[in-house]
Amino acid sequence: MYRSTGFLSFLLRRVTGVALVLYLLLHIWVIGGINSGADTFNSRMEFLGKPFFRVLEIGLLAAVVYHGIDGIRLLMVHYLNVTEYRKSLLYAALAVSAILVIAGGLPILLFALEG
């Protein structure tokens, strides 16, 4: 496998994309529970209210944030002739994503720990 920063971004894009699709299926399963009545919906919500899933929400935040910012990076590549700055752009996308995930992830973590 030819290793490069470009390949890293390619992998991250796909992994976060697949993660978001899986989340969407889970989301539809929970919301779809309402068709079977309030009890089903509430039991599904309760199941996802466990600390494990709350912590996993940080992963969801990371996937959403990185995938979105990577999309902006790609738009810049497509329309602004910035291939010369390809590595800096990737590092910037990673840095901005990391800051946003930490800023958003800490409250999620504290909320999950409180129980």
């Binding site: 490069s4 470009g6 390949f7 390619f10 790609l74 590549v77 497509h78 291939t83 390809r86």
Partner: peptide, 9 residues
Amino acid sequence: CHTIFNCID
């Protein structure tokens, strides 16, 4: 093309 940039490098 998925703009991986390996070709440039």
